[in-house]
């Protein structure tokens, strides 16, 4: 079980991202976190896997608080996770086989034969058998995501985290990924957390949908509850309307563009204003 308590994260005083998030994800559940771009969904995934430290709050993984654990224990707990990154983040210099086998080489004493069997099995699971010797540069966007998924599940994790799994894919490839996520949930019995703003994907995958807005969770319910909600903010988001309570400024306030907020007035302008009155 993952328990998030009062999680706060900001990037400097001007850029609060999470302002006290509380969330419980039960074992075996499939939770989708939705929200606008820049609302802190991906940051939340990085905090859950301790890839980034929070300003305050707790992240309890099966009762162990990742925030206060010693470094070696953080790495031990991380072995419970498999993460599919937005860009797949495959290691460029390695083949597909090496990408998937890396975790097994590092953390297990399995023979190369056994590792090779596991790699083939995981590749078959993501419908990419026989691609072991290809380099990431030779793969399409959808294939990269599937190899990234095979790498994420290579160590048989308990929790699989997906960061925008369908972003940048055509609708057919996006549906292939959605089906894969559902199939993996059923076969591997893992707990799934998906971060996305693709509502088609969210409805298809989720047992529960959680909406993050202005650094806090404003909605937590089943896909049917989301469809029937009367909450104006959630409705505007799921219907994809520009008009409504969510304004552009809301996102800017939560995640301000440093170029806008901190850009100094050019010195020439200052000088001219001093010179002009003369």
């Amino acid at each position: 079980m993952i328990e998030i308590r009062n999680l706060v994260k900001s990037f400097g005083p001007q850029k609060p991202v999470l302002r006290g998030v509380n969330l419980v994800i039960r074992t075996g559940e499939s939770v989708v976190i939705i929200g606008r771009s820049g609302c802190g969904k991906s940051v939340m995934l990085k905090l859950i896997t301790a890839l980034m430290p929070p300003d305050s709050g707790q992240v309890l993984i099966d009762g162990e608080d990742l925030v206060t654990l010693q470094e070696q224990d953080v790495y031990r707990v991380r072995q419970k996770f498999g993460v599919l990154f937005q860009s797949a983040a495959l290691f460029d210099s390695m083949t597909v086989y090496e990408n998937i086998a890396l975790g097994l080489w590092e953390h297990t004493t399995k023979s190369e034969e056994e590792i090779s069997r596991i790699v083939a099995e995981k590749l078959a699971l993501v419908d990419l058998p026989g691609t072991e010797n290809l380099k990431p540069a030779e793969l399409s966007g959808g294939m990269k995501k599937r190899v990234g998924l095979a790498r994420a599940i290579a160590m048989s994790p308990e929790y699989v985290l997906y960061d925008e799994p369908t972003t940048g894919l055509d609708p057919i490839n996006a549906d292939v990924i959605n089906n894969l996520i559902i199939r993996l949930n059923e076969r591997l019995k893992v707990t799934t957390i998906v971060v996305t703003h693709d509502m088609t994907s969210a409805y298809k995958i989720a047992d529960r949908i959680v909406m993050l807005h202005r650094g806090v969770i404003i909605f937590d319910g089943t896909p049917d509850q989301v469809r029937n909600t009367t909450d104006e903010v959630v409705r505007q988001f799921i219907e994809g309307r520009a008009e409504g309570p969510i304004k552009q400024t809301a996102v800017v306030a939560a995640n301000p563009d440093p170029g806008i907020i901190r850009h100094p007035v050019p010195k020439r302008v200052k000088l001219r204003s001093k010179v002009m009155p003369e």
């Binding site: 890839l51 990154f85 983040a89 290691f91 975790g103 990234g148």
Partner: peptide, 18 residues
């Protein structure tokens, strides 16, 4: 630097590799 901006270092860390 390229590994950092393309999340490959995060991917390495997520595989519990320092």
């Amino acid at each position: 630097g390229t590994m950092r901006v393309t999340e490959q270092i995060d991917a390495l860390e997520s595989l519990a590799i320092n």
